[in-house]
Computed example of a mutant assay.
Amino acid sequence: MIKIIVCMKQVPAGTSVEIDPETGAMKRLGSESCTNPYDLFALETALFLKEKLGGTVTVLTMGPLQAEEMMRDAYAMGADDAVILSDRKFAGADVLATSYTLAQGIMILGGADLILCGRQTTDGDTAQVGPAIAQHLGLPHAAWVSQITDADDTKIQVKQDLASVTQISEIPYPCLITVEKDICVPRLPSYLLQRATAKKPVHILTFRDFYDQDESHYGLAGSPTSVESMFAPPEKEKQVYIEGNAIEKTDQLFSILKSRKII
């Protein structure tokens, strides 16, 4: 049996995001969000290993309390526990401060045999948080994992698709891996599990719960990255409906494509 912690994150669901003009950080509270797609592959990998080896799966995230919705979905997929690290002191964190905060949360939870992260998030897109967590905790890690080739109660063997080579790595527990989207197909949330876990608590940890009480290690204060400018991506093109018979539709489509200099 192994203890697994999956680090997950809510990301903006669309292109309509607000930027704080002073800090350059995204305003996440109250904005429409969804689960980071890569993290669903990490959760499914954890559930697969739990079914194979036995053990527990805990989902961990850092962010506003609205992340409870994501945690409820994780419960409905089969997670055993869910923890949110939420405090205003964590706001505005870059990769260093985010990974440090998550590492502190993992320490409070008593560590894990295996920590799983998605390869990257669709907002920050750095692919650095997972390896940085491992560095803070002093753990061996493997990134870009596309397949679990073997696993038992003491170690895990993985296939890594790197820039120019593919390699098989065997890592003893405790360790951390970040997974690719091709590693599995995430299961759909179960209605029966959703009903069964409806009253299951989502635990909240704040700065006061942390072992390290130095505020300069968290949030904007603990972020050495300087953001010179940040902007929301442009809105996607809206659908255009063309009416008429086949010839009329063809003429209209040709005119639209020509006006946009596509042809």
Score class of each variant (00 low, 15 high):
4 I>F: 09
7 C>M: 10
8 M>G: 11
11 V>N: 04
13 A>K: 12
16 S>E: 14
16 S>K: 11
18 E>C: 00
22 E>Q: 13
26 M>I: 03
27 K>Q: 06
31 S>Q: 09
31 S>A: 09
37 P>M: 06
38 Y>E: 02
38 Y>D: 08
39 D>E: 11
39 D>G: 05
41 F>A: 05
42 A>E: 09
53 L>G: 07
53 L>E: 12
53 L>C: 08
54 G>C: 05
56 T>K: 09
58 T>F: 05
59 V>D: 06
59 V>T: 13
59 V>Q: 03
62 M>Q: 05
62 M>S: 02
65 L>A: 09
66 Q>P: 00
67 A>M: 02
70 M>Q: 12
73 D>R: 07
76 A>M: 04
77 M>S: 07
81 D>Y: 06
81 D>H: 12
85 L>P: 10
85 L>Y: 08
90 F>N: 04
96 L>S: 08
99 S>G: 07
99 S>D: 07
99 S>N: 08
108 I>V: 14
109 L>E: 10
111 G>D: 08
111 G>M: 11
115 I>M: 10
116 L>I: 11
120 Q>C: 04
121 T>L: 02
121 T>H: 03
121 T>V: 07
122 T>K: 04
122 T>W: 10
125 D>S: 12
131 P>N: 09
132 A>E: 12
134 A>C: 06
138 G>H: 07
140 P>H: 03
142 A>R: 09
142 A>T: 11
146 S>G: 04
147 Q>K: 15
148 I>C: 08
150 D>T: 01
153 D>Y: 02
153 D>N: 14
153 D>C: 01
158 V>R: 13
158 V>K: 12
162 L>F: 06
163 A>L: 10
171 I>H: 05
171 I>V: 14
173 Y>K: 04
174 P>H: 13
174 P>A: 10
176 L>W: 12
176 L>T: 12
179 V>G: 10
183 I>T: 07
185 V>H: 04
185 V>K: 05
189 P>L: 07
192 L>S: 11
193 L>N: 14
198 A>S: 13
200 K>D: 02
203 H>L: 13
206 T>K: 13
212 D>N: 15
216 S>G: 01
226 S>C: 04
229 S>V: 03
232 A>I: 01
234 P>L: 02
239 Q>D: 15
240 V>D: 06
240 V>H: 06
244 G>H: 09
253 L>I: 15
254 F>M: 15
254 F>H: 12
255 S>I: 11
259 S>P: 01
